[in-house]
């Protein structure tokens, strides 16, 4: 195998989510609010963009 480490993208500067962020991403109540908000955004985009 001739793969070199340089080929793999350096992601060490990509921001890591904090524990709070990870918990928020799985919080059912908060995520339900986001679910509704995202659905509304899709509908707004459909109305606005599909001409």
């Amino acid at each position: 195998m001739s793969e070199t480490p340089a080929v793999v993208a350096d992601l060490s500067r990509s921001p890591l989510p904090t524990r709070v962020t990870l918990r928020r991403r799985q919080n059912v109540v908060l995520q339900f609010v986001r679910f509704v908000r995202f659905d509304l955004r899709i509908m707004r985009m459909v109305a606005k963009g599909h001409r």
Binding site: R24, V28, Q31, R34, F38, D39, R44
Partner: peptide, 16 residues
């Protein structure tokens, strides 16, 4: 209108 979010709600959206 161009936004991205990551979380459990995304899974619910895909399932829906």
């Amino acid at each position: 209108e161009t936004q991205g979010e990551l979380g459990l709600h995304g899974h619910w959206v895909k399932l829906m």
